[in-house]
Nucleic acid binder design. Structure first.
Length: 201
DNA sequence: ACTTTTTGACCGGAA
DNA sequence: CTTCCGGTCAAAAAG
């Protein structure tokens, strides 16, 4: 897998200036409890990065005061796109959040009941907040989402693209069998284990 | 030992 | 053709 030599040389490496800051204790607790945490960081925290803390959800997922704007395309987006590159707004999320709570979901499941892995973050020009990029962690699931969060940790906008080709990873699934088990297990489990999901019509 | 996050660089498309 | 920008990659670090 090396068509060209590329620049496999100077990768400055992601140094992490902020090591073990921000344990958000209560913050997390609130989120798990209500799915609507009260964000009350001291002002200092604005300078601090959440960093990789294996929490139930990152601040970026928090359903706080959502200013969620529909993706600009929504207006013009018609059925032609709905089929595949669908863009949902945060409204769906808020609802999903409640659903997730009912199911008692946590771990890394997000508000929508799916699990996401962050693969990038960027400061985009049009937005004044940094945008984070997430992928659905399911092996063959093409779904991605972009989340813009304010310095306060509030969600400014979430844009989903694509559709999940699997069901939500609910509890009935034996969570992890590291590398030894075939990923098929997980997939099969997902596709059979839950009836909580409404058919995509 | 493993999974996930962080972060700068790279790539490709659009203007 | 050049430049700009958004999206993705991949190594290291941390829990």
């Amino acid at each position: 897998m090396q068509p060209h030599e590329k620049v496999a040389v100077l990768k400055p490496v992601a140094s992490r200036p902020f090591s073990s800051f921000w344990p958000f204790p209560k913050f997390l607790h609130d989120f798990n409890a209500t799915c609507s945490p009260t964000i009350t960081f001291p002002q200092e925290t604005e300078l601090i990065r959440p960093k990789a803390t294996r929490l139930a959800s990152l601040p970026g997922d928090l359903p706080t005061q959502i200013a969620a704007t529909t993706d600009a395309g929504s207006d013009t987006m018609s059925e032609e796109v709905e089929g595949y590159a669908k863009h949902h707004t945060y409204r769906d999320h808020a609802t999903a959040c409640q659903a997730a709570r009912r199911n008692g979901e946590r771990s890394r499941l997000s508000l929508d009941g799916y699990s996401w892995r962050k693969y990038g973050q960027k400061k985009v020009k049009g937005s004044e907040f940094p945008r984070s990029y997430y992928k659905c962690t399911h092996p063959s699931c093409p779904v991605k989402r972009k989340v813009e969060t304010t310095p306060d940790g509030q969600v400014a906008e979430i844009v989903y693209s694509g559709e999940h080709n699997h069901l939500k990873p609910g509890k009935p699934c034996p969570p992890r069998k590291p590398l030894l088990s075939t990923s098929t297990d997980a997939v099969m489990c997902d596709t059979h284990g839950i009836d909580d999901m409404t058919p995509p019509e």
